[in-house]
Design a protein around this nucleic acid. Structure first.
Lengths: 185, 185
DNA sequence: CGACGCTTGTACCGATCAGTACATTAAAGA
DNA sequence: TCTTTAATGTACTGATCGGTACAAGCGTCG
């Protein structure tokens, strides 16, 4: 029966897309099976905790990506301005210029938030803090850096909501362009 | 049996809160019955089309409120700057300083968007356009007004996402304060 | 080649889903 | 008071929900 031996890691991207498009409650096992190509047997073998464990794995996977590609460069790169510019580019790539929505944002808005409270809050807090630190290193006054970083993180989320609502990815692109000038990169 | 005679209008606020907190898919008939105090009999009497009709009624109800309290003043008030300031105040009141989330935003992010595509898109397009017109009348150059209005609408949505994600309504309050200075009111 | 353990498909579970049918009751008009 | 219509509670439907049990298949290592 077991034709191809899968690894747990392999299904995380597909799993992420399901939660991205349907949210936690909307992501039924039937949809998950269809999108991952795995049956219930495999799914519960890799994720004994069921949907909750799948979602936690997806959130951890996303967190790892942002930590490596965005937060750490923001915190540690010698050239702070370059790191900020890279953040914009990475964000644009990750969200496919607004075609993709943010899983963490989707979870934040729903009832789901409570269940994944730590992961959801942490993702945004660390983004804001890493960007704030980079802005300070880039020469912004501390107060302005705190304000700018919060504004940037929230603008990205809002741009995803709005561009999806009006079905126009140009909204997202324009928002990132505004961010660039505001952050001075 | 029929103890109290309800009107369809009366249940829209409660219905709105259910969709706000649970989204469309997450809003089960069981929850709706509990929150509205109405049984299935009454619910399907007032909304023969089921959940879909309930959601459409809620969206129309919200749209009416924003049209009266926000969009029209923005479009028609002689004092454009005062109308913009009133928009900020109304927004703060409506979303309870960030404690409440935006139903339309919630619908926009999920699969639900497709089903209510027109209402979802229209809500944001008309907000952006009404604000743009007010900004022009307040003396902003046309290009800047278009940019500022889109930025404002998207910032409000993002502020709702972020303040709920980090469970801190101060995020929303700060975002509105920034908006005030950016819009020049 | 044989045995063991990691995958996998399938059948099944009780709970809940949205929605329907219908009889009963209350309110309103004559 | 009688009649009609609007509002309501209850019982039910078939489908789907997340999750479990388990046997059968596969790869791997001896």
């Amino acid at each position: 029966m077991a034709k191809i031996v899968h690894e747990r890691e392999d299904v995380l991207p597909a799993l992420g897309e399901v939660f991205r498009e349907h949210g936690f409650e909307g992501a039924s096992l039937a949809i998950i099976q269809a999108r991952t190509g795995l049956g219930k047997g495999s799914l519960y073998h890799f994720f004994p905790g069921g949907k909750e464990e799948m979602a936690n794995a997806v959130l951890a996977h996303i967190d790892r990506w942002f930590e490596n590609e965005v937060y750490r460069p923001l915190r540690e790169d010698e050239d702070a301005r370059a790191a900020i510019a890279r953040m914009i580019a990475s964000t644009d790539a990750y969200f496919r210029s607004g075609k993709r929505v943010c899983v963490v944002g989707v979870f934040a808005l729903g009832e789901t938030r409570e269940r994944f409270a730590f992961a959801v809050g942490d993702y945004f807090v660390r983004w804001r803090e890493a960007l704030r630190a980079a802005l300070v290193r880039a020469g912004h006054p501390p107060d302005a850096a705190a304000d700018l970083s919060e504004d940037a993180v929230l603008s990205i989320q809002g741009a995803l909501v709005l561009s999806r609502a009006v079905k126009d990815t140009a909204v997202f692109t324009r928002a990132l362009a505004r961010l660039k000038t505001r952050l001075g990169v």
